[in-house]
Each structure stands twice: as structure tokens, then as C-alpha cells.
Design a protein around this nucleic acid. Structure first.
Lengths: 65, 65
DNA sequence: ACATTATGTAAGATATATATTACATTAATC
DNA sequence: GATTAATGTAATATATATCTTACATAATGT
């Protein structure tokens, strides 16, 4: 599993397009990050987290390895 | 204050150059991230955290706002 | 079934993170 | 105080995140 963005996004009742608009980025960018095909910038990660009301660890930190 | 990288790096007894080598990046890149002048990629942030034995939140998440 | 909404994906363009090389400055050690 | 190690910083080059446009598919409602 890549990251938990999608879980928190739909949990927040947001579509990819809506989240994209809020963090000032493209819908495609959100989709590709969710799909694990993009390596987003820290600032974008932080914007996403703040918009979804969670922290970096909750979405982007994987405990396993 | 930008992020707490420097605190944890010197706490780990590492020089910028040593950390850079471990995360496979340039010394300059580390220096600029510490100085808050770069917007690093998530993967690099994760590498740095793992090398320093901390999580994303500890270094890159600011509670204020 | 059809219309609409949400998502996947791809090609080419643009912005920016990072590399490379180089030199300057500061801190530490002798 | 001279020498070395660590860090700051700048110019140009390269790699890659992100944008733009476009089309295709999946899901959902009527």
C-alpha cells in the first residue's frame, strides 16, 4: 500500500477535483499521488494534510517496511 | 522556524555531507533544506527521517498556525 | 439506455528540485 | 594565527514534478 490519501479524502467527503482545487493543484496530480505514481513535494503534502485535517504521519508515514 | 532537521542531524552526530551521502543526495541539497530554501520531495523527506530515526511529523510538521 | 459525475491515463510543455562545480565564510583544531 | 573541517551560497545543467489538453472508462442517477 502506498499512502492513505484516498481514505482520508473520501472520509472528508471530497472528490479529487475538489481537493485539487483547495490545495491549488490539478486533479491529475491528486490522482497520481493517490495512485503512488508521483513523488509530491513536502509543501503539497502539508497542504493536503491541513485540508484533510490530519498530520503528515497519518497519511504519508508507513510503519511497516 | 522552518523545520527541525538540523537539530536531529547534529543530534545524530552527522555532518551535512554525511547525511547527504546516506540519503543519496548532495550536501548542498541538505543545506538548503535545513535553511528552508528548498521544498524537498516526500521520498527524500522519508529517507532523511529514516536515517535520523524519527518520523515525518517530528521533523517536518509544525504545530502552530 | 442515457446523461452526468468521478476517475484513469497519456503526450507535450513548463516550472522547479536537485546535481555539478566552484568559491567564500565560519568553526574547530593544532 | 595558520590549517582543516563544516557550512553558506551562486551559476549553469539536468531530472522530474506539475500543468495543459484530451480522451477513455467507471460509477451513479434519471
Amino acid at each position: 500500500m502506498k499512502n492513505k490519501m484516498r481514505v482520508y479524502r473520501v472520509g472528508a467527503g471530497l472528490t479529487q477535483e475538489e481537493l485539487a482545487f483547495k490545495v491549488d493543484v490539478t486533479r491529475q496530480t491528486i490522482g497520481l499521488i493517490e495512485a503512488g505514481k508521483y513523488n509530491p513535494s513536502l509543501n503539497l503534502c502539508i497542504s493536503i494534510c491541513k485540508t484533510l485535517g490530519v498530520t503528515l504521519n497519518e497519511i504519508f508515514w508507513m510503519e511497516e517496511d
